[in-house]
Design a protein around this nucleic acid. Structure first.
Lengths: 252, 252
DNA sequence: CGTGCGCCCTGCCGCTACGTGAGAGTCAAC
DNA sequence: GTTGACTCTCACGTAGCGGCAGGGCGCACG
């Protein structure tokens, strides 16, 4: 009983070498060996293999996959839900790119000349807030992120333009507040924080005060977000962070 | 004029090292250099870079991308259309995987026990006919494939179950015909060929006799398809091929 | 005028996730 | 008992960069 390596590879649609590799690095060790030393894969092995391949398709490294799969308090159902969410997210991202290509096709047809900046923007260096939901969910397991993916996947090109405009507007006002020397715990900054929270709720997912403070922490901890704010104004990341916390404490 | 490497990298959302690498392998050589030997990227370079990144996201190797981009008779519009189609295809594939995950979740909830084969099938080693459209279009430039992607992306889990069932039913009858010793140019085989053509039209895209014969050739030429048929019965690939050709000649 | 500081250059070594043999044993079939 | 398909274990090769070393630019600031 159990499948030999060739059969397992065929079933999963991978090469024998790949299975050898996974065995070498300890990612997928077959349940047993025959007398002659042949690998024998049982049903549990194949189930694990399937999960590996799905996470791999989603862009995780083999090391990350090992961590995810060997986490003791993640049952099969949690894996399926997470994979489901991540897949929806990928689709949302691809849809955004489709919208970008359609936008460029339009521009080309009408003969509009776009600056390089505009061209790259068409695809979006993915919006930080949408991205945040992903990061949040990647290891957590709420459904804020799945909600985000579901909603963003329904957005049209025009929607994205509107969303981008509103986001940039709010951003400009953050910068203005910082430049004006507003205190992060003051009325103005806290109102901006509240507006920020409502904007996320409106476009992506229900952003509670708790989630919002979580985002604020990430704005400081994750350099991708830090850079996003700091590129606009030195100290802006910390300013936004502090304002969000003050706002959450005051209103919650 | 022209952007320095750091600025170009920032615009495109890649690292400087990546641009160096593309320069090294000749995939993207900056339009000029400053007096001090600094790379200077002009607008045309950035446009090329954007195309590179999109094709890369779609899974092409850098070498393949070079071939695609340096093909003299592919204008910007053709690139956009191709990218648009390929993106829709990726989305369709991911949707199929989503459906697969949902199917597994259902099965898990109801407590159904699936064999490993069934589990891997849930995601589909992608249906050959849908795949065919892709291969057809990847280098050609009709829109059969885009049509296929558009339609399949709208299919639900239940739809896929039905499609799979119908496909397998037809497949079984091909096998039966071959086993029964039916001639490939006979009535029975030709009727199966016609049914095959209509099934593709129904589920994926308008399959003309011309396209159909194209598919038949591919069933013999591309080992992924050959294997698909030969795994069921030796000689089946050739049998299907001959029947499709006979049918096309007789009816067209 | 020099002296940081940030950006740029060219090697070059390292890493991941395998591909691709080489050389040898295994197993079912004829 | 031999053939052909499958398996094993080294072991080196490859793609697409990441990251660091050692060294030039270039402009501001004192």
């Amino acid at each position: 009983m159990g499948y030999p390596v060739g059969r397992a590879a065929e079933l999963a649609g991978v090469t024998v070498r790949t299975l050898h590799h996974y065995d070498e690095i300890g990612l997928l060790t077959p349940g047993g060996r025959s007398a002659a030393g042949y690998r024998r894969y049982d049903d549990a092995d194949l189930e694990r293999l399937q999960r590996i391949l799905l996470y791999r398709e989603l862009g995780f490294t083999l090391e990350e996959i090992a961590v995810i799969l060997d986490d003791p308090d993640t049952d099969p159902r949690a894996h399926l839900r997470r994979q489901h969410g991540l897949l929806l997210d990928r689709i949302a991202r691809l849809r955004q790119m489709v919208a970008g290509v359609e936008f460029l096709m339009e521009a080309h047809k009408v003969g509009v000349n776009l600056t390089p900046e505009e061209k790259f923007e068409a695809f979006g260096d993915f919006d930080p807030d949408a991205y945040a939901a992903e990061a949040q969910e990647r290891w957590g397991d709420t459904d804020a992120y799945a909600q985000s993916a579901r909603r963003t996947s329904g957005y049209s090109k025009d929607d994205w333009v509107r969303i981008r405009a509103e986001s940039e507007d709010l951003n400009a006002r953050w910068v203005a507040a910082l430049d004006a020397g507003e205190p992060a715990e003051g009325r103005v900054a806290m109102d901006l924080a509240e507006e920020h929270r409502l904007q996320i709720t409106k476009f992506y997912y229900d952003c509670s005060y708790e989630i919002h403070t979580g985002l604020a922490e990430m704005y400081l901890a994750d350099e991708r977000f830090t850079a996003n704010y700091e590129n606009q104004r030195a100290g802006l990341a910390r300013f936004v962070h502090d304002a969000i916390l003050a706002n959450a404490v005051a209103r919650a």
